[in-house]
Nucleic acid binder design. Sequence first.
DNA 1: TCAAGGTGCTAATACGGATTATCACCGGTG
DNA 2: CACCGGTGATAATCCGTATTAGCACCTTGA
Lengths: 343, 343
Amino acid sequence: MTAPGRRLTQQDIARIAGVSQTTVSLVLNNRIDAEVRIAPETRERVLRVIRETGYVADPVARRLAERRNRILGVFTYEAVFPTASADFYHPFLLGIEECAEEMGCDLLLFTSARAAGERRRIFNEDSRVRLADGCVLLGRAVDRDDLARLLTEGIPFVSIGRRDDAGAPVPYVGADYSPAVRALVDRAAGLGHRRLAYVGTGAGAESPADRMRGFREAVAAVGAEGVHVPVVGRTPEEMLDELSAAGVTAVFAEEPADAVAIMHAAGERGLEIPGDLSFIALGAPTRPVRVDVDLTGFRIPRREMGRRAVELLARLLERGGGTPQELLPCELVEGSTLAPVRS
Amino acid sequence: MTAPGRRLTQQDIARIAGVSQTTVSLVLNNRIDAEVRIAPETRERVLRVIRETGYVADPVARRLAERRNRILGVFTYEAVFPTASADFYHPFLLGIEECAEEMGCDLLLFTSARAAGERRRIFNEDSRVRLADGCVLLGRAVDRDDLARLLTEGIPFVSIGRRDDAGAPVPYVGADYSPAVRALVDRAAGLGHRRLAYVGTGAGAESPADRMRGFREAVAAVGAEGVHVPVVGRTPEEMLDELSAAGVTAVFAEEPADAVAIMHAAGERGLEIPGDLSFIALGAPTRPVRVDVDLTGFRIPRREMGRRAVELLARLLERGGGTPQELLPCELVEGSTLAPVRS
DNA sequence: TCAAGGTGCTAATACGGATTATCACCGGTG
DNA sequence: CACCGGTGATAATCCGTATTAGCACCTTGA
């Protein structure tokens, strides 16, 4: 039926339908401007050939000529289908896929982006970001230089997760961590907690920084005392020691997995949770962990963030201009690990 | 540094360096064949301009000139990032991504493939399969007509999962279910089981049919008795009734989730597992299920299948021709739900 | 009978880079 | 001095699609 070797082109369609390549292009793009006219029967004939042959325009050529191919790129610094953090990224991708599907766009995963043995970079020897109309960035730590370059090169993109300026404002859809953390601190304070701890880095990327900021502000506002317990290179037991020594009654953990680990250590020491010690998880686990309690905290609207990012990207592509920046609210999760402080 | 409006082209570089666009291209591609020569000083001059301007070749134009995308399509009949069957498809995708990454290919997810409200089809009004160099097919039930059309249109593809001929042989990477099931039946027979049951459809798609075939052959070979217990529209209790009535001592379940459900029902009736009733799971769960026992059965080499599919597709694209068909062995899982039959 | 105006389509070109065919030049030969 | 082979570069094309300018052809009206 079809020639096995070569891909069908408009030229082929034109030849079969007995018209010019131009006509095929015009029919395909439904150009019925006053400028250009195609007789209904010609149009039908061309459409029939297209239907019969299953012709599809080459997206590359299309992109070269038109600057658009209805392909949205998805760049992730980590593998898209990882084993470890699958649960964390999955909802974002779900949202992205849903929205792309609704908009009739295909998704291009830049899996080729890794320079041999190294970390993925958006711009490697022959970066292919431009194959897509625009792209969505996903990943905990987005390279600052990559961001800057995306901006200066004018490549349309939306980052999932708030990003500070990188020479210029960065378009993003983020989770509004600060108010969520503040609300939880307020609630803890309302339950009598006066010595609160923030467990985590609280810095580095924007999202931990946002949480930390919310924590500090709220603690100051309610006149409580807040301590920062770093987590890198320390065992749950060590952290628990520090918490106990500081007389902390409510633990705010950046990473739920840490909360779980410390809770476990606390349980081993005979502490009751939340009676003796309350735990608040600030987000979703980024490493695999068995969560068997109903942690108090908030839900990162990951799926919605994915959707929104694609929506904003689409808007960027259509109308251009502007630097969309949105923070989506996190929904509080009641849970059962926050209780009134023991008198 | 970078021109704000337009992107630099080879033409620009050529103008600045005082050479032709051809020369720039030749220098860039390091063409030092005997055919083409560039004087060292000219080459240096061009390279300097490139360095100074930060010029990078437009990958789109590049792809147009070569005849390939280095884009591999991934077509899934269900959403790629589903909530329900995530666990089942994930390993395949993991393998696909790994391999694509190693080969420097990007992955195109055909998210646009769904006709409004309907099931996904490869060929809908404006199918975009041809966007990619070739594609990998994933999904339990692959549409027969779609397969046939892929074949007649000569679109390079590899199916994950064995497929029967669809007018012509279909390229695939499958799991070798039959021998795996046979081995398990042999083992059960060796433990004294004489009345075995196959729980599942055992037909429809190729993979259940392969399992059923393995079951039937092995049962016949060892001179045991095999019953087929259909599963559609029946409760675990009903199936358990049938199993008991037939005096079955070993249950081979196509779908581990069914095994778990029936085991649960059996437990409720005071049956001991595997003392009173053995269970063998023929694969991985395709619906979310809480598996708290260590099921005897086999492991579908999903990740390997994903990898292999991409490898074969790559080979198909390079050398062309041939219809690769491979079945990867399933690794037996010892587990703890198969025991000697009670005397 | 010829300009005016509309209709239906196509030739030419752009997009940015890769490739092929060709060309100008120079020193050395017969 | 005509010829030749090697050197260094370029003009011309091509890849597949979109767009623009323009060309035949047909009707109408004067």
